[in-house]
Simulated scan of single mutants.
Amino acid sequence: MTAPRPARVLVIAGSDSSGGAGIQADIKTITMLGGYAMSAITAITAQNTRGVSAVEALSPDLIAAQIEACVSDIGVDAVKIGMLGAPAIAHLVADRLEALTVPVVFDPVMIATSGAVLADAATIAAFERLMRRATVTTPNVPELAALGGPEAMAARGVAYLAKGGDAEGATIEDRLVRPGAAPVVWQAPRIVTRHTHGTGCTLASAIAVGLGAGLGLVEAVERARAFVRAALEAAPGFGAGHGPLGHHAVR
Rank of each mutant, 00 (worst) to 15 (best):
P150G: 02
P150L: 07
P150A: 15
E151L: 13
A152Y: 00
M153Q: 05
A155R: 12
A155C: 04
A155G: 03
R156F: 01
V158A: 07
V158M: 01
V158Y: 01
Y160T: 01
Y160F: 12
Y160W: 14
A162M: 02
A162S: 08
G164Y: 06
G165Y: 00
G165N: 03
D166T: 08
A167E: 13
G169Y: 04
A170H: 02
T171H: 06
T171P: 00
I172W: 01
I172F: 01
E173K: 05
E173V: 15
D174R: 00
R175H: 00
L176E: 07
L176F: 14
L176M: 11
V177F: 00
V177P: 08
R178I: 04
R178W: 02
P179G: 03
G180Q: 05
G180C: 09
G180F: 07
A181C: 15
A181E: 15
A182C: 08
A182V: 05
P183T: 05
P183R: 02
Q187A: 15
A188P: 06
R190G: 13
R190F: 10
R190A: 09
R190N: 09
R190D: 13
I191W: 11
V192S: 15
V192M: 13
T193R: 04
T193M: 05
R194G: 14
R194V: 04
H195R: 08
T196P: 13
T196H: 11
T196M: 02
H197T: 11
H197F: 02
G198M: 12
G198V: 10
G200Y: 03
C201N: 09
C201E: 13
L203Q: 05
A204Q: 01
A204R: 03
S205M: 11
S205L: 08
A206H: 05
A206Y: 12
I207F: 01
I207V: 15
A208G: 09
G210K: 14
G210I: 07
G210N: 10
L211G: 06
G212T: 04
G212H: 02
A213W: 13
A213K: 06
L215G: 05
L215P: 01
